[in-house]
């Protein structure tokens, strides 16, 4: 079992990093030939970066749109962030002070995340409009995340696992000094689902994570009259232009 999980996590990590790397490379390579910020937009590049930051941190546009959905989205994502911070302690030794202090918040974060996910799932099943746009993969993604969150929360609150052993396993993976994974069915479930998430990440709608940074309607400054913007492929149209 330990070997299986070791292989699984190496594979998942490679797929996640390479997959995301290729996607980001594509987004960098393909130019945005025209200025298309959704206006009113900041006039400077710095302002545009701040606009993207607001989208990432406070989901500004979503807030404009729908306060209920925004609240659910924040519950899930903010909870997820707390959980991820809590998980840092499994991957580094010694554990920094801040991470230790954050531990209890991580537990609440997990519950917040699961509650958010259930609400998002309910919304997909109940609202006719949202049901129409929901495909099987959208439901599976929520179920997967609920599975991860649920199995994690069970281990934290009810059926404790040998976290020292888990940490040794992951530190071992990272230093190529392999250790045994504690034999615990719930832990197996949790880790298998996490690996599945990592494997589907670069091929699914989770691409909204890199995508948001490359969205031209958000990351472009509104300076079209001041600065000429020309894509390399569009340069061919420059020829045979009348000159004064």
């Amino acid at each position: 079992m330990s070997i299986l999980f070791a292989v699984l996590f190496y594979a998942a990590t490679i797929v996640l990093v390479a997959g995301l790397g290729l996607k980001v490379a594509q987004y960098v390579r393909v130019p945005a030939p025209l200025k298309i910020p959704t206006t009113p937009a900041p006039l400077t590049q710095g302002g545009a970066a701040f606009r993207v930051a607001r989208e990432v941190v406070i989901f500004e546009s979503l807030f404009k749109s729908n306060k209920w959905l925004w609240a659910m989205a924040v519950m899930f994502h903010f909870g997820l962030v707390l959980v991820l911070i809590r998980h840092v302690r499994y991957f580094i030794e010694p554990v920094p002070m801040v991470i230790t202090l954050m531990q209890p918040f991580g537990i609440y974060g997990g519950l917040l995340m699961i509650a958010g996910l259930f609400m998002l799932l309910g919304r997909r099943l109940v609202l006719p409009r949202i049901r129409y746009i929901t495909g099987p993969s959208d439901l599976l993604m929520l179920v997967l995340l609920i599975g991860i969150g649920g199995s994690g929360a069970l281990m934290v609150n009810f059926v404790h696992t040998d976290i020292i052993g888990v940490k040794a396993f992951f530190l071992g993976l990272m230093t190529f000094n392999w250790q045994k994974l504690p034999a615990d069915p719930l832990l197996y479930v949790h880790l298998a689902l996490v690996a599945a998430l990592m494997l589907v990440f670069p091929f699914s709608k989770l691409l909204h994570v890199p995508g948001i940074f490359f969205s031209p309607t958000r990351n472009q400054a509104d300076d079209a009259r001041e600065r000429r913007h020309l894509a390399p492929w569009a340069a061919k149209y420059e020829a045979n232009k009348t000159m004064p």
Binding site: V30, A73, D138, K205, I212, F214, A231
Partner: peptide, 24 residues
Amino acid sequence: LLGKYRSLPVFLDSCVKCGSCADK
């Protein structure tokens, strides 16, 4: 077009089907 307009791959990949746009 996917190779000419960044908006296309980014927009096509990123949508999470949240429906925020649906009633707009």
